[in-house]
Design a protein around this nucleic acid. Sequence first.
DNA 1: GCGATCAGAT
DNA 2: CACATCTGATCGC
Length: 410
Amino acid sequence: MESGMISVDKWSYGSQAYFLTHLHADHTAGLSSTWNRGPLFCSRLTAKLFPCKFPSFNLFLLRVLDIGSWFSLSFTSPSSGSPTTIYVKAIDAQHCPGSVMYLFRGDFGCMLFTGDFRWEVTGSGVENRRAMLLDALKNETLDTLHLDNTYCNPKYSFPSREVAAREVVDIISSHPKHDVVIAIDSLGKEDLLLHISRELDIKIWVWPERLQIMHLLGFHEHFTTQTSLTRVRAVPRYSFSIETLEALNTIRPTIGIMPSGLPWATEQNGNPFSSSEYIFVVPYSDHSCFSEIQEFIELLRPIKIKGIVSSSSCCIDPCYYFDHLCGTQQAIWRIQAKIENDEGVDTSVEAAEIKSSAAKETKEEEESSTVVGRKRRRILDQVDFFGIRVSRVSLLRRLCRGGVRLADTE
DNA sequence: GCGATCAGAT
DNA sequence: CACATCTGATCGC
């Protein structure tokens, strides 16, 4: 987790800098308004929301990392005591407002902390996000992926949030005389509420603290704290239960909507909601489903994966399902594929060939023997490797030998 | 009496 | 299975 210098979503002593992925309570456990253990890095939006959670926090400790830009930070190596530099880039995590992943490069290699994230593979901006991520990695192996493995099991399958949001609107539309309560947390699922508000042209009630958050996010026009103005209310998830819904229904007809990736609706027992006629569970999730996690890992080809959600069993252990996508060879194949892609070669056709690296090198030698091939190579043969320009061939050979940097550093 | 931490409920 | 959050009990100062 830490290299002795940095901590991500961990707040105990012993780090020179601390990184917060997003403002949900399970990632801020240990933080308080009196916390003062070092500089705290976060996204600009998280910094804006921060005082709501920690009103008297010393804001001089906050450091904003703008999304998509590299920052260099100077540290003291805990082992040698000598100065060292770490590079960090924040990447949109698509989980809740302000949420980011952190990509680190340093003496320890290359590490990505996803925090909580959703990696939807349909909808607008998908290609752009994919390209941004690969570009951030450059032509380096990803040594360790710290992964949001919340739903890392094939049994977790759900649609995009866009599809789930339409399902929610359909449920509300088909109950025109009912009041509606929707379970949400202190942050997140704003897009769902905005979709409902726009599609049905209604305001949505939220509790006062939540309206303050909506104000900071710039969404306040769609929300109100006056119950008389709307039949749709967003309520804290912990206050949402069968008992609540039954009590509400003694006053007026009310349905409840629980947006969640957890497959409660299909469970037989132990599920308080499946037996309720009032409650609709809709698969709207701010975490990646299994197939999205798989896409993410296939894209990154990390050498090693660590799940950020610990589990007593292997049921959500990423190594159990994706070990075959990890390791040094897999990491090298990704880099080769990217280099080919940057050269304009159709990698989809070559995907199978790439897996035979020996044959690949031979083919490249042939290709470079043409006049055009030689010219192109002179420019593209140089690749950026841990900040050093090295020749592509030498890089690939070093990687194939299992070069120094590829050894596990943790 | 306050803050931190944890079990339990929702 | 396990989300994010609140409440209440307990511990140490």
